[in-house]
Amino acid sequence: MPSVKRHALIILAEYGEAQAELKGKTVILADGKAGTVEEVCLDEMHGLRILIRGHYGKWPVSTIKFWER
């Protein structure tokens, strides 16, 4: 399998795992916003981003913390 296809398959597999792990989880962003992850997006310029229910915008996954009870 050509190298480019192999890399694409790895990226898509990791994206699927991240989506399964994050979607529906309650998170807190570094700027204090909190909510439930509604969608996980793959942005070619910025990498993995999330949409939080009730808040406008997309945030990098590196800015979240999981809500612990």
Rank of each mutant, 00 (worst) to 15 (best):
G54V: 09
K23E: 11
V40K: 02
L48D: 06
F66N: 03
D31Q: 01
H7M: 13
K23F: 00
Y56I: 15
D43H: 06
W67P: 02
G57H: 02
T36P: 00
L42Q: 04
L42V: 03
P2R: 14
R49K: 13
I11H: 01
K58D: 09
S3W: 12
L12M: 10
T26N: 13
V40G: 03
L22V: 00
V40C: 07
F66E: 11
K58T: 12
V27R: 03
V37S: 04
K65Y: 08
E38S: 09
T36F: 03
L51C: 08
E14S: 12
R6W: 07
A8W: 04
A18G: 01
G35S: 00
E14N: 13
V4P: 02
G16T: 00
L9N: 03
P2Q: 13
K33I: 10
G24V: 00
A13R: 14
G57R: 03
C41L: 14
G57S: 03
Y56C: 12
V4F: 09
R49G: 09
E68R: 15
E14Q: 14
V4L: 10
L12N: 12
G54I: 04
R49S: 09
K23A: 05
H46E: 06
I28V: 15
Q19M: 09
K58R: 15
G54C: 10
G32V: 02
P60G: 11
H7I: 08
S3N: 11
I28L: 14
V40T: 05
A8R: 14
K33L: 14
R6E: 10
I52A: 05
L42E: 00
G24R: 03
E68T: 09
L29C: 03
A18H: 06
E68A: 14
V40I: 10
K58Q: 13
I50M: 07
A13S: 15
G35Y: 04
Y56Q: 15
